[in-house]
Simulated scan of single mutants.
Amino acid sequence: MPVLEHLDFDIPEGIELRTELSLRALQFAKVKGLRYDRTDGAAPGVLFGHSDECQHGNFYPPSYREIANHPQWERRLGKVHTAFKRARVRANWDWKELDCAHSSDALLMNIFCHPGVLISERAQAMLGVDSHAVPEFGFKPRTPIHNDKRDNTEIDMKIDCLLVEAKLTESDFQSARCGLISRYRDLEAVFDLIELPSRNGKVCSYQLIRGALAAHATGDSFCVLCDARRPDLIEAWYRIIRAVRSHELRYRLKLLTWQELAGVLPNDLRLFLAAKYGIHQSGC
């Protein structure tokens, strides 16, 4: 398995995370000779493509080889990027969402598709998962809604009895109108509705509410995996946890940062995350 050398990129201090990731991606692409393109806009993004050697610049090679050999994982790569029709430069390149350097799903798969991660006892203990667990990306928990129906929305990943919502540069956890929230059968049983945050007539952190309801319905744990450089997202998650009525369910609602997770990852993968994402294990 290749080991990525230490790469020391010139990144200004104090810049916004999305800008930092774009700068890192550009420098990473140029140093490695990777195929890439850029979107237009006030905060341009960087997108990576496939090479002639069947590699992909947005993925660490050992992880990408595992993805290519797993049909369900490989299908996850096919979602079209929302900007490609209006902004792409190369007519023969259909951008995909996981091509983007800012993609939290790509970061999630870089880590959890790596062959050395889930065989690690330290990683298993941190996540609370079984040694034979296989990640499922884009999992649908089928949370109950009224009239004996089930929700069809996705959670980013399920491993064993752990549901995971991953975030990186997303602005928030989405807002939703009250009618969309109230369709969940167990909403009032799980939450003190007065405590749920709202803004401009909409309920905030809809994805987190969905995740907690899924954990309630399935008996699984629900973990928010985000960057330590995003205290706003961390506080948003704690606000939702405070609105949960059951102490037992609160115990199954977790927070983990990419930086904490990096501390139990294989060294070669840590070097990749440090260079491409600026993610260093906690304390480093």
Rank of each mutant, 00 (worst) to 15 (best):
M126T: 13
I241M: 09
A176K: 03
H56G: 04
V117H: 04
R229S: 12
D52A: 11
W93N: 09
E16S: 15
R230H: 11
G14T: 11
E165F: 04
N58P: 01
R150W: 04
L265S: 06
L265D: 04
A176V: 06
H280P: 00
L107M: 15
D37A: 10
A274Y: 00
V224I: 09
H81A: 12
S221F: 14
L273Y: 04
R75F: 03
I145L: 10
N69K: 12
C100P: 04
F191A: 00
F84P: 01
W93P: 04
A215L: 02
E20Y: 01
H132C: 13
G49D: 03
T82I: 14
A25V: 01
F272G: 06
I67F: 00
C113Y: 01
F222H: 04
R242N: 12
I159C: 09
R142W: 04
G138S: 07
S182F: 13
R270I: 09
R150Y: 11
G57A: 07
A217L: 06
L118S: 13
W73D: 01
S175R: 09
A228I: 13
K202Y: 09
N267Y: 08
Y206H: 13
R38C: 06
L4T: 15
F84G: 01
A166G: 15
L180E: 12
M109H: 12
E165G: 03
L163G: 14
L193E: 03
C223N: 08
L261E: 04
G57T: 09
I279R: 06
S104R: 05
D52E: 14
L273S: 07
G219M: 03
I145R: 13
V89L: 14
D148G: 04
G14K: 11
R245L: 03
E97N: 05
K276E: 06
Y60K: 02
E195D: 11
E74L: 05
A212P: 00
E154H: 09
R183S: 04
E97D: 07
H81P: 01
S221C: 12
V203Y: 08
E20P: 00
I145G: 08
E248H: 00
V164R: 01
V244T: 05
R65F: 08
K79N: 14
K149A: 10
A106W: 05
D8Y: 11
Y36R: 05
Q55L: 11
H132M: 14
L17C: 14
K85W: 06
P141H: 10
D232Y: 11
A133V: 14
R177M: 03
D105V: 08
G49L: 05
F191T: 00
S175Y: 02
P2S: 06
V80C: 05
R252N: 08
L196I: 13
R35H: 10
H102L: 03
Q72C: 09
Y238M: 07
V164K: 02
G116F: 03
M109N: 11
R177G: 05
R210M: 01
A25Q: 07
V244G: 00
R270P: 06
